[in-house]
């Protein structure tokens, strides 16, 4: 439609396209109905409230196989969420470091930062995951000779660190901060996350050791290094996109190098890199599903692997999985989206 023509509704074509789409979707649905009749058990939602009957090896909240299936899905979602959040934090730190290093030729380590970005951006995530999991973490000591010196315990299955009562103290502290935030204005989300963290930390305090499984470690390293390379490229591009005139103006005002970066260039670059950073954060949440390949019990593995195998409810489980991931993505978009501010 041309922009100078008057906009009007073409009822005939609207109805025609609607009929076409409905025809295609109903064709797919009836095919599925015919094909799945042979083996599909009846579609019911009752399996969500019956007991799970499987064990989740790695869980942040208390869980036993007698708990209902919806609670198992919640446990898996918490696994995904915590993995994604910790990767977000560490990848941001690494990405900013490498981005700033690779943006300016005055740093001696520029070649290192740019080759890091080159290597980690151009290789597939699955390959990197297998490299860390089967290659690097495979070198940890076998079960027969565990390394143990009272403080750390390293084996091929897990890494344990002695924490004593640290988590109990932390949990108490977070509880107080969360309750304090509850009485402030516009800090409800903040207080909720503090209370959640306090609950999780309290859960750790039953044991004097903090244990991380090797699957978690492998996923964490892989996703951190992989995403950090993308974030480094974003940071570099935004820093270089600041016009030279602004640089000159800052020098004319008599700012030294450090102040110029901190007060002038960095705030401008931060504004232009925000949408791309949000994009990367959403991508991290989706990339955690790669944990399925090494058997880490995150949302994709539990919902579409274990539960489908034990109940056979394919359509419900798959659509539930898609809905959860979609709502996480849309929620992140909604959370970070603001009116675009011109630089």
């Amino acid at each position: 439609m041309h922009i100078y023509q008057r906009q009007k509704i073409h009822w005939f074509y609207e109805l025609l396209s609607l009929a076409f789409i409905v025809l295609i979707i109903s064709w797919l649905y009836f095919n599925w109905k015919i094909n799945a009749l042979g083996y599909q058990v009846s579609n019911t939602w009752t399996f969500l409230s019956s007991s799970a009957n499987f064990f989740i090896s790695d869980h942040w909240l208390p869980f036993s196989p007698k708990d209902p299936t919806w609670y198992a899905i919640l446990i898996a979602s918490v696994n995904t969420f915590i993995l994604g959040m910790s990767v977000m934090m560490s990848a941001t730190v690494f990405g900013f470091l490498f981005g700033i290093l690779s943006a300016y030729p005055k740093y001696k380590l520029q070649w290192f930062a740019s080759s890091y970005v080159d290597v980690f951006r151009n290789t597939p995530l699955v390959g990197q995951l297998f490299f860390w999991y089967f290659g690097v973490f495979y070198l940890m000591p076998q079960t027969e000779h565990i390394y143990y010196d009272g403080f750390v315990k390293v084996s091929i299955q897990s890494l344990s660190i002695y924490t004593g009562n640290l988590f109990f103290i932390l949990s108490f502290f977070y509880l107080i901060v969360g309750i304090y935030f509850l009485f402030l204005k516009r800090a409800f989300g903040m207080s909720l996350s503090f209370l959640l963290m306090s609950f999780i930390y309290f859960n750790f305090s039953h044991s004097h050791y903090f244990t991380m499984s090797v699957e978690w470690l492998a996923l964490y390293t892989t996703l951190t290094f992989y995403t950090a390379s993308y974030i480094a490229e974003i940071v570099k591009a935004s820093l270089l996109s600041v016009p030279n005139a602004i640089d000159d103006a800052a020098i004319a005002l008599g700012l030294n190098d450090k102040d110029k970066f901190k007060l002038v260039i960095y705030p401008i670059a931060l504004k232009s890199m925000r949408p791309m950073l949000i994009n990367q954060y959403i991508t991290i949440m989706k990339n955690t599903s790669i944990g399925m390949l090494i058997g880490y019990p995150e949302l994709m593995n539990v919902l579409t692997g274990t539960i489908i195998n034990s109940t056979g409810q394919t359509l419900i489980c798959v659509s539930l999985m898609m809905c959860i991931y979609l709502s996480v993505c849309l929620f992140c978009q909604f959370l970070f989206m603001r009116k675009h501010e011109p630089i």
């Binding site: 989706k286 990339n287 599903s289 790669i290 399925m292 994709m300 579409t304 798959v318 999985m321 898609m322 991931y325 979609l326 993505c329 849309l330």
Partner: peptide
């Protein structure tokens, strides 16, 4: 809906 779901999910 395709952008919001990881590729593994689409494949499954």
């Amino acid at each position: 809906s395709v952008r919001g779901v990881p590729l593994i999910g689409l494949m499954i």
